[in-house]
Design a protein around this nucleic acid. Structure first.
Lengths: 204, 204
DNA sequence: GTCTATACTGAGATAGAC
DNA sequence: GTCTATCTCAGTATAGAC
């Protein structure tokens, strides 16, 4: 059947999102998809490439939206620096749209970073929009030294990853798990203030 | 031999720190430690419990230092709110001391959260100092609503985890990898500003 | 081109002899 | 306390049916 590939993709997406990449075996995937184990390797080559295919199919639209939003924010600002919050929203809000229709996928995106999943794969899917994010942040914060900005982007991605998974790092610290877009707005506010903080010089 | 257990612990600590928990097999550990595979299960019970033992041995002092620092910051502030940055430093700087003597361990602490390693284990080792951190932050920011504070702690832990691992999420974003305490000071400044941002109300 | 059956290697875990 | 043997289950590879 031609939809063997689809069944594998759909099932893998769901299971990876629900339980994480490492925790899901190919045998679980093929059992639920009702296909043969070898079909996975025929269509995808390996478990890792299956993950890659799952992500490619789903993150593409998010990346496209991010690219478009960032470009729009820069265009609207004209020759003025755009606001940091606007830049952050442009990058983060596309995940909220996805979260409505497919909460599992957002978790998976978070887990990608969170599980230390194959840095090459993470890189592949975030590189394009990540580069544009950095460029936009540089416009918003022209006086922030490069090193400082890079570290702050690093902090941001860490915070973002854990926020997307929705899994409280320490269950005791769990706040409301509900409204996803409120969560993102909180994140934007928090990160915006952080990015705007004066730079920590190298010599104090 | 009585030091079979020690050899296993030492080797596991090094390998987990260098390559992560999931990526290291017990067979690698026992090969380098030159002990039998069954010794691991005899002394620790399982791979997971071995990780637990590794962490217990090493994180104990860090937690103690955190507890002491947080208490001191609160005491020094008297009946005034302490500064957010002082609270954050009290929590974060103990990792810098460890990083000097044992960089691998700090990576491992980061990876614990970052790899989504067994939430129960992460919780066990961070719960005590985490609770005191939250209490201290509440003193520093008495007007911040509880939910908002909890999410900000969540953001903070995500940023911290990725900063500790030292692994750039996207290699392109790698800044300097050197001075660990500078990195922490940058993190404190970034997070301090974020925590001090006005709350994002539930209804806007 | 697609898929199935089956086998291979290496993982964590366990029972039982010593 | 330690070690051998063995179990189950993982990801992977291949031969061959259709």
């Amino acid at each position: 059947m031609i939809d063997t590939k689809q069944k594998i993709l759909d099932t893998a997406e769901r299971l990876f999102g629900e339980h994480g990449y490492a925790a899901v075996s190919l045998r679980q995937v093929i059992a639920e998809a009702e296909v043969n184990i070898a079909a996975v390797h025929y269509h995808f080559g390996s478990k890792e490439e299956l993950l890659d295919a799952v992500l490619l199919r789903k993150i593409g639209p998010v990346t496209a939206q991010r690219m478009e939003n960032l470009q729009r924010v820069l265009a609207e600002a004209g020759d003025q620096p755009p606001s940091v919050e606007k830049v952050l929203e442009a990058f983060l809000l596309p995940t909220a749209a996805v979260a409505q229709s497919n909460p599992t996928l957002v978790k998976l995106m978070g887990r990608m970073i969170t599980e230390g999943m194959l840095p090459q794969i993470a890189e592949k899917h975030f590189r394009e929009s990540g580069l544009r994010l950095v460029a936009a942040l540089k416009s918003a914060l022209p006086h922030l030294p490069h090193d400082e900005l890079m570290w702050r982007v690093h902090f941001m991605l860490g915070a973002m990853a854990h926020t997307l998974t929705g899994v409280p790092i320490i269950s005791l610290f769990a706040a409301d798990t509900g409204d996803f877009s409120l969560r993102l707005r909180r994140l934007v506010k928090f990160l915006g203030a952080g990015f705007r903080a004066p730079a920590e010089g190298k010599e104090n």
